[in-house]
Deep mutational scan, measured.
Amino acid sequence: DLSGKLIIKAQLGEDIRRIPIHNEDITYDELVLMMQRVFRGKLLSNDEVTIKYKDEDGDLITIFDSSDLSFAIQCSRILKLTLFVNG
């Protein structure tokens, strides 16, 4: 049953990962930690990372904090994230 699940599709460069999320109350910090685990070796804990999501118009919107993240989650059951490393 995928109805209650949130799917995160995260892209870093050419690498795209699909991550099912069971807890929608994820904070921004938890998201960043999850991305560091998912992209281990490509995304380091001291990297400056910018996370953006695609909205319904196809625009890339920056996620700065947990309220941005929860808004993005409300918009779509499949959250398409693009990561930019400013390392």
Rank of each mutant, 00 (worst) to 15 (best):
L79V: 10
D15K: 06
S70E: 05
F71M: 14
R40C: 11
N46Q: 09
M34W: 11
L60I: 09
M34Y: 06
I51S: 00
C75G: 09
T62F: 00
I7L: 13
P20W: 06
E30G: 09
F84W: 07
S66L: 01
D25N: 12
I51F: 11
K42W: 04
L2S: 12
F39A: 00
D47V: 02
T27H: 05
I51K: 01
R37I: 12
G4C: 13
L69R: 01
G87T: 13
D1G: 06
L6Y: 10
I61M: 11
Q11L: 03
L81E: 03
Y28C: 02
I19H: 01
L43D: 03
L69M: 01
T62P: 14
D65C: 08
T27A: 05
R37F: 05
S66F: 00
N86I: 06
K42L: 07
D55N: 15
K54T: 14
H22T: 11
D25W: 04
K52F: 04
G13H: 05
R40T: 10
Q74R: 12
D55E: 08
D25R: 11
N86D: 14
Q11V: 07
V32L: 10
Y28N: 00
D59R: 15
I16R: 13
Q74N: 10
V38S: 11
I78Y: 10
K42I: 07
D57M: 12
H22S: 12
N23M: 05
E24C: 12
D59K: 15
S66P: 00
T27S: 09
I51V: 11
F71Q: 10
I73A: 04
Q74L: 04
L6N: 05
D57T: 15
T62I: 02
T27V: 02
I16G: 02
K5Q: 05
A72P: 02
L81H: 01
L33T: 13
I7S: 05
R77D: 14
G87H: 12
G41F: 05
R40P: 14
G87V: 08
L2G: 02
D1Q: 02
L2T: 11
V85M: 11
I21F: 07
D65I: 01
M34V: 12
D65V: 00
V32K: 12
K9R: 15
K9H: 15
Q74M: 05
R37N: 10
P20L: 09
G13D: 06
L12H: 03
